[in-house]
Amino acid sequence: MAIIETHDLTKEFGKLTAVDHLNLSIEERDIFGFIGPNGAGKTTTLRILSTLLRPTSGQARVAGIDVTKKPYEIKKVVGFMPDSFGVYDGMRLREYLDFFGAAYKIPGRKRKAIIDDVLALTDLASKADDFVSAFSRGMKQRCCLAKTLLHDPQVLLLDEPASGLDPRARIEVRELLKTLRDMGKTILISSHILSELGDMCNKIGIIEHGQLLAHGDYREILSGLRMEREIRLRVLEGADRAAEILAETPGLNNVDRSGNEFHFESTIVREALADVLHRLIQSGVKVLFFEEEEGTLEDVFLHVTKGGI
């Protein structure tokens, strides 16, 4: 069942069309990676879905609720983490979360327990009595995520949650999002750090100039876009024989040998590739590994998008 749906969603800023007839469907419990170059319309889409921006035309629904008609109801089911945000001066973390908890109408008797839970989840329990304005960037990101989780939203809209973070903090945020996915949240995440999205997203959408160029299951998109497979072969003995076999086999192109290691492209089906491996072994070649190189999100991104602003 689709929890986020958009139909011909369009947003114009004067002459600029930031989002152009966007049709998107995200299933419950998906982690959907929303990728695109700068100015592609990712943030605009997220802001429309979180009711912070009104669309020029088209429809957007979250959990079956129209974002333009019932913004108050949307706020109950959506947690939005903006790409840039500030913190209030002079507030300690617990006070900060208490304020937002009260603003989300969480009753006082439940609020403390909820705050303790989100502090534990975001690994901030030891910082509960510290001033948020003195936190590092990574800590502020976590603090904002903790605030976003306070009212237990079904859907999380995260705009560049890992931007500006050091590698350790990025890994921690990634692990946290995986935990949230396991808790049953639907997460729509926009990011430029494509390698990380590939690790945690089961679906992706690629947007450029406000138009959705591709979207769907990450693996399917990856395999659908790659007509040729890249294969890597390393042998211990019989490298010359292996080179002969590869040269003889139709459908294997651009064979590149470097000592005992080979790289080549294959247009043949997987069963035929298995036959090639069988022939190599039967010919006495000692194969160390024979593997298909995985494509990356970067490859897909570069293949689908045209670039330019």
Binding site: T51, L52, S84, A103
Partner: peptide
């Protein structure tokens, strides 16, 4: 100016 307006608008206030 502090960048808090979005978070404030997203609350149920």
């Amino acid at each position: 100016e502090l960048g808090n307006i979005d978070m404030l608008r997203m609350t149920l206030l």
